[in-house]
């Protein structure tokens, strides 16, 4: 009744209708928006970038040089120890930042923004998928910053190698962001999140082959490393950058690179599905 003189476009009662966008389009836009939101937030919190790459750099330079002087070129497939661990360090930075990317969910819960999303008429699936893609791409972006150190430690880079590496890191980041989401779905407070993450992260890094070869390990340790999703990501990265590196073996057989990728993708999809279910039942 006041529609004509009204500068606000919501005047007429008939304006309250279904939104013009279809369900699929709405969910696709939501995924994209959540993804962009992670990137915008990263840009506005630059200290996060520094702290996320500081630890891998210390590992690479200090541990690489220190332990490298101990082991020499033996047992590292004929390359220097720093070259050997470089792909592992890349994967390690992905593990850290992907798992921590899920902290934004806990953050959103504490600061209320999660409720804005949960009360919206979009599927839980697109909220979770958007978070996984967003968290994954942020951590890949951070991981790629480390590539500038490759020539410094003597890793030879080519365009196909970098492209292959990006795909490998994306897969790993997606899988581990999904794992982070699963963990965050049941955690309400920031402090507990950090504690749980520390418990998950340390073993995941040390049991992944990032810093030592997984050949000739005691059986119980070998079994644990094969159960670790990060192991396949480390193997994939290493074989992309160091073609002569010994492949990971599973039940005594070398794992082809495509199988590494497939295993990560499968685990990631399973985690994502679980994450969606947990969020659907959560609130």
């Amino acid at each position: 009744m006041t529609a004509v003189a009204n500068p606000i476009p919501a005047a007429a009662p008939t304006a309250h209708i279904k939104p013009p966008a279809g369900k699929l389009l709405r969910n696709v836009r939501t995924i994209r928006m959540i993804w962009f939101r992670e990137l915008i937030r990263l840009r506005r919190m630059p200290t996060r970038i520094i702290s996320s790459i500081a630890q891998p750099i210390i590992f690479l330079l200090v541990m690489g040089a220190g332990i490298g002087s101990l082991v020499g070129d033996k047992g590292a497939g004929g390359v220097s120890y720093q070259v050997y661990i470089f792909p592992g360090i890349l994967a390690m930075s992905i593990i850290t930042s992907s798992l921590f990317s899920a902290m934004s969910i806990v953050w959103d819960r504490e600061f209320g923004f999660l409720r804005e999303m949960l009360v919206a008429p979009v599927s839980r699936g697109s909220l979770v998928l958007g978070k996984a893609i967003g968290g994954g791409s942020v951590s890949v972006a951070q991981g790629l910053l480390l590539i500038v150190f490759a020539p410094l430690v003597g890793v030879h880079l080519t365009v196909p190698r970098v492209l292959g590496l990006i795909i490998a890191l994306l897969l790993l980041a997606f899988a581990l962001s999904s794992l982070g989401i699963v963990i965050s779905s049941r955690i309400q407070r920031m402090e507990s999140f950090q504690m749980v993450m520390a418990l998950v992260m340390q073993p995941m890094i040390f049991l992944s082959g990032a810093v030592f070869p997984l050949t000739s390990l005691p059986t119980w340790l070998a079994v644990l490393t094969r159960l670790n999703p990060a192991t396949y990501g480390v193997d994939l990265c290493r074989r992309i950058l160091i073609p002569q590196a010994a492949p990971l073996t599973l039940f005594g057989n070398p794992v082809p690179m495509w199988a590494d990728a497939a295993i990560i993708l499968f685990l990631g999809a399973a985690m994502l599905g679980l994450g969606i279910r947990l969020f659907a039942n959560a609130e």
């Binding site: 013009p20 804005e116 008429p121």
Partner: peptide, 11 residues
Amino acid sequence: RFHGILYGIAP
């Protein structure tokens, strides 16, 4: 804008 997208309003 984020809210608009969540509620299916064209950008």
